[in-house]
Each structure stands twice: as C-alpha cells, then as structure tokens.
Design a protein around this nucleic acid. Structure first.
Lengths: 214, 214
DNA sequence: CCTCCTTGGGAAGTGTCACTATCCAAGCAT
DNA sequence: ATGCTTGGATAGTGACACTTCCCAAGGAGG
C-alpha cells in the first residue's frame, strides 16, 4: 500500500499523513526506493488511532506522541506501560495551590477515598495526575458554590467503580500487552466520550419521563 | 466593585475581562460615568462560570456565548431552556453518513435504546446532538475494531441511568429556573470531568487490587 | 530517448482561537 | 497639576493543526 492508498483508505489527506510521519505519530513505511514507500495494515490501524486521539479525544499532537511512545515501548512491564500511556493523556489543569478552595477540595477527596476504602488511590495520591485533576475539579466546583463533598460524590464513585470493574474484565480478554495497552488508550479516549454521551442521553430520557417532552 | 477588583477577586486579568465583555460573555457593569463602571457579585459569579466553561470545559468562546444566552433567556420554559443550553455545548463531531460504520452504529444504538426501553430517547432520535454524537463515537469504535454493541453498552448505560436519576434529584433542589439551568450547565461542564476522574481513579484502584502496585 | 505524471520529503505559509499589548481620551485622587 | 485608573478600540502574539509549495527522483507512455 502506498501513501495515496493509505490516504484513500483512511480518509486522511496525504499532506496530513506526511505531517504525522514527520511528527513521529506514525512509523515510516518500508522504503522501496528513493521515491516509494510501502505501508501495511498496521499503519492503517495506527493512523486511525491517531485520528481518533486527535479528533475525538482532542489530544494535542505532542501528547499523542508521548502516549504512543509508551504504547509501543515493549521494554516496560504491563502495569507501568499502561499507567505511563494513560498518564500522558491530557488532564484537567493542575490545582492552584494558592487557592483556599484547593485545600478544602484536597480534604474532601481524601475523605471520599477513605469512605470508599480506595486505599491504593490514597497511597498513590498526588503522584497520580488523575488524583490531582480530581482535586482541581472539585476545587472549581466549590469555588462556584456547588456542593461537591464526599457524600455527594460517593454514590457516583461507586457507579464508576462498577464501570471500572467491567472495563478491566473487558481488558483481560486481550492476549498481548501491546493490544491491551492500545485498547486501554482507545478506551480512555473513545469509550469515555461514549459513557458521557450515554450519561447525557440518560439525563434526557429521565427528564422526559419526569417532566414530559413539551 | 470596579474592573480592577473584579480582576483581583476572580484571578482573571483586566484585559481578559474586557475581552469577555466585548464578546458578550459577561454583561457590562453599571456605568457610573464615562470612565467608571461598577460590577457586583453576579458579575463575579458569571465570570467564574465563563472561566470554568472555557478552561475546564474547553468550550469555544462562541459556544459559551450561545450557552449563556439560553441560560439567561427567561422567556423560555424550563425544559426548553435547559435543552437549548445543553445542546449548545460542543459535541463530538457529527457522524459521517458515507461511512458504512455509521449505519452499523445507528442500528446498534437503536437496538440499545430498545433493549433499555429508553423510548423518549428513541423518539427524539437524530434530533438530539447527543444521540448523533453517540452514533459517531460508536462508529469510530467499530472502525477501530473494538466491540461496541448493544450488549457491551447496556450495563454501562444502566449505570449512567442511575447517575442521571441522581443528577435530576440534585437539580430539583434549585428554586428558580435560572439557578437550575445554570447548575445543569455547570454540571455538564464541571461535574462530567469529575465523573471521568472518578472513573479513571476507580480503574487505577481496581487495577492495583487485581494486579498489585509493582 | 523524451516528456509527463506521481511519489516522498521538507520548508514555509494559513486559519483559528484565546487572549494580550498598546494606545487613547476622559475622569478621579492627592 | 500630575499620576493614577477607567472603558473602548485595534493590532499583535503564540500555540496548534494542518496545508501549500517546491523539489528531485522514479516510472509509464509515446
């Protein structure tokens, strides 16, 4: 498969593919001679993943490169590789340490984790970008005056724990580590929006049931 | 409160506030004379909401203006106003009608809604931007070769239904329509990221439990 | 052989977006 | 009077994701 065909089959312009090659998001094809390179199905698949990351996940090109670097790094153990790839995804901005709301949010998140018995999450704590961005988000809620305390979040957290258990069950069906890490990245970038859409759809449904459609 | 104080209390530079005023994201203050305008707590609150929309929700300025226009439109009924505000939030790109994956996705989403008995959602169907973006997201998953059928999604949808029921319960505590619509927008923009963070944290927790921290 | 088209590759340009810097004339404060 | 700040306007900035342009090297048709 040459560049033109890769472009036709993926729906991505040749100029954009060349840009991705330059940016290191896509491995170069097998060079046949000075003016011809050959690509295969793995390139097509990776290209589609890149598009999904950038267009659906709105992941900046530089972050996408980081994420994919970890996906491809076979020297790492499965857990580390997965964590590294997911932690390279863009997060909500880090908390503003100056803000008093941040202190309140930190306390509230810690209380939530203790209530739930999520001890691993408490141990990892501020090391995890996810934890930090959760604190920042809760702080923003507090600053706007919306209640976002441990009691409010706990039932939601329990729902998300059930979702996470299901995610990991699905993930265990993959044989190779590379497949698994790639699926986890896809899941974070593509399945999370699906969840969000389901959530909003559920809100519309529930609202229509309670208050009618008018 | 004058511009400088509004800036100090919100942490947003005066230049940026002036930009928001120009873009119609913030109502002008009460003009005291040619060179002085006075702002109050409602301006501060709105400014923080605007920042949350733009910085946390990554909502484009133009969309934020649309959303806020609906939030402020007291001539509409509660349900319409809420729907209009939420539908003005940016969604995943619309499905590509040409793509065969889109047809498969449409069928799968319809099957999901029938299985769940979400009849209102089925009736609204493609009118809802949420429905359309769900189809587009499922199509992307299918194109990448990840299973995203009704059976896979149904348990997640049920979890999201429980979350939505809880959302609406919380929303009913607000007295005025304006408060309610504003809280719904905040919820969509700020609480959804909280949910996502809880989801990822739950994944980390569950993964640490199953496979350890090494 | 010559000519024309296509190929991959790289530098430079484009459009968008969210600010940001600069300027201005008009007040108010000391 | 002088040195602020104010609202208002215009132009500029920097990041980002492309996209256009140009090139030299193949290969295909005549």
């Amino acid at each position: 498969m040459r560049l033109a065909e890769l472009s036709a089959r993926s729906g991505v312009s040749t100029a954009t593919i060349k840009y991705y090659l330059r940016e290191g998001l896509l491995a170069p094809g097998r060079q046949l001679n000075a003016t011809t390179a050959e690509y295969d199905e793995t390139h097509l698949r990776r290209l589609r993943l890149v598009r999904a990351l950038i267009q659906v996940g709105r992941v900046p090109v530089a972050s996408a490169r980081e994420v994919l670097k970890h996906v491809d790094d076979e020297s790492l153990g499965r857990t580390i590789r997965l964590g590294a790839a997911l932690w390279a995804l863009p997060q909500a901005p880090d908390p503003d340490e100056e803000d008093p709301a941040t202190a309140a949010a930190t306390a509230e998140v810690d209380r939530l984790l203790r209530t739930l018995g999520w001890d691993a999450a408490r141990e990892i704590g501020a090391l995890s970008p996810v934890h930090r961005s959760l604190v920042a988000l809760v702080a923003t809620q507090i600053r706007l005056g919306y209640p976002c305390d441990a009691e409010t979040m706990a039932p939601y957290a329990e729902l998300m724990r059930q979702a996470a258990a299901r995610d990991l069950d699905r993930m265990e069906t993959y044989e190779s580590d590379t497949e698994m890490v790639e699926s986890a990245v896809s899941s974070a970038v593509l399945f999370e929006p699906v969840l969000r859409a389901l959530h909003r759809l559920a809100q519309e449904e529930e609202s229509a049931r309670r208050y009618g459609l008018e």
